[in-house]
């Protein structure tokens, strides 16, 4: 079976050859790994890769799975599943569509004006919460149609802070490759 698995925005093909129960071969890049595993619990898999044990903890997320190995959490996605869900809803899976805070925050700086064109990923507004600052970025390229807040305003999750109208040409570039 071939999978296409995305980690940190890098997609790699993974070729799986099932062997006995709880045993398989996995080919990634130029390497083939001998994998035996045991399902310790619903969350924990003890993998033995080429004889070396490693514990992986896995949870399902809306945007894929979270896999923790050696203290590092990886967001892992199946490129094929992602493409299917994109057909159903024409939006970037996992990426927020709207400019809204994840936690109650205060507006520090608005980086754009009404009428500005923005590129996908461009910083749009700077917020502060619990003494930390973060910048929210445009989820797609387009034009700023409305700025709904001013510096110093308190904002809450769910509130749309900046309206951006998606540029038409951007819809074509949303295929997953």
């Amino acid at each position: 079976m071939e999978y296409k698995i995305i980690v940190q925005e890098e997609t790699k093909p993974v070729e799986i050859e099932l062997q006995d129960e709880f045993s398989l071969k996995a080919a990634i890049d130029e390497t083939t790994y001998d994998v035996k595993y045991s399902l310790v619990s619903d969350r924990q898999i003890c993998l033995s890769v080429d004889g070396k044990s490693v514990n992986a903890y896995v949870a399902d997320l809306p945007e894929g799975k979270s896999v923790i190995i050696n203290g590092i959490a990886y967001l892992v996605q199946d490129a094929d599943l992602l493409a299917q869900s994109q057909v159903k809803k024409s939006s970037d899976s996992g990426m927020p569509e709207e400019i809204t805070p994840v936690t109650p925050s205060v507006v520090v700086t608005v980086l754009v004006k009404e009428g500005d064109s923005v590129e996908k990923g461009q910083g749009v507004i700077v917020l502060s919460a619990m003494k930390m600052e973060t910048t929210l970025n445009a989820p797609f390229s387009g034009t700023v149609t409305a700025i709904k807040v001013s510096e110093g305003d308190k904002v809450a999750p769910g509130e749309i802070l900046v309206d951006i109208e998606k540029a038409e040409s951007d819809e074509e570039s949303e295929e997953v490759n």
Binding site: V7, I28, V35, V76
Partner: peptide, 21 residues
């Protein structure tokens, strides 16, 4: 920036979990 040194292991874990899910 965090280093994702075990990304391939994470890929394998994903697949194993998916198969058993």
């Amino acid at each position: 920036k965090p280093e994702f040194g075990d990304a391939d292991l994470a890929r394998i874990a994903y697949i194993v979990d998916e198969m058993n899910a």
